[in-house]
Amino acid sequence: MVSAVMSAAEPKAARRRDWLTNVNAWLLLLPAIVLLAAFTHYPILSTLYHSFFSLSRGGEADFVGLENYTYMLEDDVFWQVLRNNIVFALATVPTSIALALLMAVWVDKKIAGRSFLRLAFFTPTVLPMIAVANIWLFFYTPDYGLLDQFLKGLGFSGHNWLGDPSTVMSCLAVMVVWKEAGFFMIFYLAALQTIPPELKEAAEVEGAGRWYFFRRVTLPLLMPTTLFISINALINSFKLVDQLVIMTKGGPNNASSLLLYYIYEVAFTFQDTAFAATLTVTLITILAGVALTKFVYLDRRIHYQ
């Protein structure tokens, strides 16, 4: 009799427990959901919406379909900043990754002053981009900047590094690599230290040289890190534009302008929010494409421990 009552009450109690668990879970997720929805998801959707409307200076905004996008495709500056951005990414991403790996392998060894070297490599990461840009602005200053003073000592004449369209991109790329490589080094260093030392010994017994071991064991085992870093570096190359504000304002003649800086100019200098929305949607699409490539394509070809 008692057991019959118990079994009838049980599913009810269980359902109630499940319900409470669910409520509990949603309540815990609520703060994150609210913040993400208010400051990430809603702005994205709102941007997408605005990119299909004409600019409303006080009056009504009209639905214009893909007109903003056609305008974008005909905009020479858009193509130039996109080209700049791709060149900038190609110049900074592989270089900073290679440099990070080189530094990590170096400071992973048992050498004198290892901690000091690690710290030195990491220092540029700690500095804010604004400060870095100001420091490098001084390096590149024509005639009395550090670079020109050094070159003058060697008998070369002064050069307006940031004022010359043919050198400005390289100058910015060098600076960004300097700033980023140390940060990526930390990830490589952490990954290197998870590789058990016995692997090296086993390879040694089998007669593998250092370079063979690096190529056939270390590099493949670092691939998850490399992927992570390359995605981050790529995204950074699209989203880090602080240096432009300080150093070149995108000049000369848009030679150093990047997509995000152009969006900033369009939105806040030219006050053309509709076109800025269109450019933003384009930028988000590019970044989403990069992230999707990682998740869908590259992840499957990489060994994770």
């Binding site: 058990p196 016995e198 010994e201 086993a202 040694e204 017994v205 089998e206 064991v217 691939m223 060994h303």
Partner: peptide, 29 residues
Amino acid sequence: SPAQRNISMVFQSYALFPHLNVAENIIFG
């Protein structure tokens, strides 16, 4: 060097290469 001594070795942790399959691990040397 270990390689010149013409020996083979089995480690306590086995020291298998995690990214290589069984066949590749065996024929590594």
